[in-house]
Computed example of a mutant assay.
Amino acid sequence: MSSMSKWVVGLALVGLCGCASDKGAKQPEVEKKEAGQPAPEPIRPKPASNEKVSERDTNADGKADVWVYSVEERGAEGQSHARMVRKELDINWDDRVDLTTYYDARGEREREAMDLDFDGKVDSVAYYEKGVNVRKERDLNGDGRTDEWAYYERGKLARKERDSNSDGRVDYWEYWEKDQVDRIGEDLDGDGNVDKWSRNSQTE
């Protein structure tokens, strides 16, 4: 089975969805730290001392592909219970985590990190409020910094921003209406302000 086929089957099993990503040349992590750049976030962080993990085998191949991390807490009346804080999934069954979901104190999903190119590092992160996706961030060139931001309103894509030259400043904006681009703003001189607007004639 091809890698892409495994992704499709794995996503069907766990009820998740993903997207593809391309990466440019990567700078060694040691050089990144010396240059003051953040190292990419690992898709599988080290467990905290108070976290307990349980494993699941969803495809019956004898190997774990889901790891659930929980911490012991006490309720208002002093009763003890386990609260899930993180879930890791190997959705293409290559024995490596591809997706990590973090949960808040209410048990609601608050952040979902994905490794799209199977290198063990986070490439894309989705943020949730009350279980609803409100923002997605992507590291397109593997330098540990976000290059693209997508903002959602009522579940619909409303705006995209991009740092296209990796200088740490947004220089490209897309505004969306009715599931399509309405207008595009570009910063041509690097001052952080839009210099050129383009409109989609189909939305006028």
Results as ranks from 00 to 15, higher is better:
residue 2 S to K: 06
residue 3 S to A: 08
residue 5 S to D: 12
residue 6 K to P: 00
residue 7 W to S: 01
residue 10 G to F: 08
residue 14 V to M: 07
residue 15 G to V: 02
residue 17 C to N: 14
residue 18 G to S: 11
residue 19 C to N: 08
residue 20 A to E: 09
residue 22 D to T: 10
residue 23 K to C: 03
residue 26 K to T: 05
residue 30 V to S: 15
residue 31 E to R: 13
residue 33 K to L: 14
residue 34 E to H: 04
residue 35 A to T: 09
residue 40 P to H: 01
residue 44 R to I: 01
residue 45 P to L: 09
residue 46 K to I: 10
residue 46 K to N: 15
residue 49 S to H: 13
residue 58 T to F: 14
residue 59 N to D: 15
residue 62 G to Y: 09
residue 63 K to P: 04
residue 67 W to R: 11
residue 70 S to K: 07
residue 71 V to A: 11
residue 74 R to G: 01
residue 74 R to S: 13
residue 77 E to H: 14
residue 84 M to S: 05
residue 86 R to H: 09
residue 87 K to G: 01
residue 92 N to Q: 03
residue 94 D to Y: 10
residue 97 V to M: 03
residue 99 L to E: 01
residue 105 A to G: 07
residue 109 R to W: 08
residue 109 R to K: 13
residue 110 E to D: 15
residue 110 E to S: 11
residue 112 E to R: 05
residue 113 A to G: 05
residue 114 M to P: 01
residue 117 D to W: 03
residue 117 D to S: 00
residue 119 D to L: 04
residue 124 S to E: 03
residue 124 S to I: 01
residue 126 A to V: 00
residue 129 E to G: 12
residue 130 K to I: 04
residue 132 V to E: 15
residue 133 N to G: 12
residue 136 K to Q: 15
residue 136 K to C: 09
residue 137 E to R: 02
residue 139 D to E: 13
residue 140 L to T: 07
residue 143 D to N: 14
residue 149 W to M: 02
residue 149 W to Y: 10
residue 150 A to D: 13
residue 156 K to G: 12
residue 157 L to V: 06
residue 160 K to D: 10
residue 162 R to N: 04
residue 164 S to K: 10
residue 165 N to M: 10
residue 167 D to Y: 13
residue 167 D to L: 07
residue 170 V to H: 03
residue 170 V to S: 04
residue 171 D to G: 08
residue 172 Y to G: 02
residue 173 W to F: 07
residue 181 V to W: 02
residue 182 D to P: 01
residue 187 D to Y: 02
residue 187 D to E: 04
residue 188 L to P: 05
residue 188 L to E: 07
residue 189 D to W: 02
residue 191 D to L: 09
residue 192 G to H: 04
residue 193 N to A: 07
residue 194 V to S: 01
residue 198 S to H: 13
residue 201 S to N: 13
residue 204 E to T: 13
